[in-house]
């Protein structure tokens, strides 16, 4: 399995941004989520973010909320998330709110993820002040820690948070929750420029990116482009399993064209 570093280096050498795709575990069913994710990879997604569903997802808009509710009704557990990670053909991350990780056990989760072949965890509500145990444990198991920074994050704070990051930095393109937007916020490029001043790590931009045109725009200044809700929306709108797999793969193909800098 390639490391995150290799993925970003390769994308850079090909004059494109890395494409990162999000899909919750256990959505719409446990079986289908693995097939959907591998369809994203076949379509050109470089890195997969597996969502760990949570009952109180305050950073997520209606689409991901709906998917999380479905997944929870399917009884998705930490072990299910780890099993899914082990089936993915590309470098895989888990995106999780903090409580499910803490409940499973920080050590258990990091060790389990490492055994499943996972390369990192995005923790949208874990602050660096509460991260002492997480940093020690993820270092021990060679798991990357990805924190999410926002346009409101001060320069001083950006330096502190990115110092705790590894793999890449997740830049939220705007002040708000996940979900497709008509246009990518202008605050994204400014935030990326501010992050560049404090870290050498690759920077991936997420929130509101849903099509190839937007991906192309973001790829002009960021090292990675993150797409989530747009994939899920296709699954919600499709009329069969095969239809959803085909649509997800097509969007991934379009986005992977979009992230090429021309």
């Amino acid at each position: 399995m390639k490391s995150l570093k290799e993925v970003f280096e390769r994308a850079k050498s090909e004059n494109r941004a890395a494409l990162i795709g999000y899909m919750p575990a256990g959505f719409p069913t446990s079986e289908l989520s693995a097939r959907l994710i591998n369809a994203m990879v076949d379509g050109g997604v470089d890195i997969v973010e597996v969502g760990f569903p949570y009952s109180d997802p305050v950073m997520d808009g209606p689409v991901i909320q709906q998917a999380a509710e479905t997944s929870l009704r399917n009884g998705t557990s930490a072990q299910d998330v780890l099993n899914l990670v082990s089936q993915i053909k590309a470098p895989a991350l888990v995106m999780s709110y903090w409580n499910p990780i803490e409940r499973f056990g920080v050590e258990n989760f990091a060790r389990g993820l490492s055994h499943a072949g996972g390369v990192g965890v995005i923790t949208p509500d874990l602050t660096i002040e509460e991260s002492a145990e997480w940093i020690t444990t993820t270092n021990h198991h060679s798991i990357n820690r990805i924190y999410v920074v926002a346009p409101s994050t001060s320069d001083a704070r950006l330096a502190e948070v990115t110092r705790a990051c590894s793999g890449f930095v997740y830049a939220a393109s705007l002040m708000g929750v996940t979900g497709a937007r008509n246009s990518v916020s202008g605050s994204a490029s400014e935030l990326v420029a501010r992050i560049r001043r404090v870290t050498q790590l690759p920077i991936a931009v997420g929130l509101g990116v849903s099509n190839a045109e937007q991906a192309n725009q973001v790829a002009s200044y960021a090292d990675g482009v993150i797409v989530g809700s747009a994939f899920i929306k296709l699954v919600l709108e499709s009329n069969s399993d095969d239809d959803s797999i085909a649509r997800v793969r097509t969007l991934a193909e379009q986005l992977s064209e979009g992230v090429r800098r021309s």
């Binding site: 602050t127 002040e129 002492a132 926002a150 346009p151 704070r157």
Partner: peptide, 26 residues
């Protein structure tokens, strides 16, 4: 980071578990 971790805690409880976007407002 050590000193900061004491902020807003009651023994092991309290603290801040929020998106980074809210830190400045808090």
């Amino acid at each position: 980071m050590e000193q900061k971790s004491i902020l807003g805690h009651f023994g092991p409880y309290g603290g801040r578990f929020v998106p980074e976007a809210l830190i400045q407002a808090l």
